[in-house]
């Protein structure tokens, strides 16, 4: 349907992916992470810092 998707990776993983994150990373339009270390796990991610 051409809908755009955004995924926010959980706060309580700092340097390892979640299963959900691994699954949606290749297909989501934007992938948000909350820790700079996560850019190594998901290079195309946008780091917005903690949501808390």
């Amino acid at each position: 349907m051409g809908l755009k998707t955004v995924y926010i990776e959980v706060f309580d993983r700092i340097d390892k992916p979640t299963l959900t994150g691994k699954l949606v990373y290749p297909v989501t339009n934007k992938f948000i992470v909350q820790w700079p270390e996560m850019k190594r796990v998901y290079p195309k991610a946008i780091d917005l810092g903690g949501i808390f």
Binding site: K4, V6, I46, G49, I51
Partner: peptide, 19 residues
Amino acid sequence: NSHNEKFVADFSHIIVNMV
């Protein structure tokens, strides 16, 4: 000092640019 406001502002900006 919560980082929540900054997160939401930056996130909103990303969404606005997407649509």
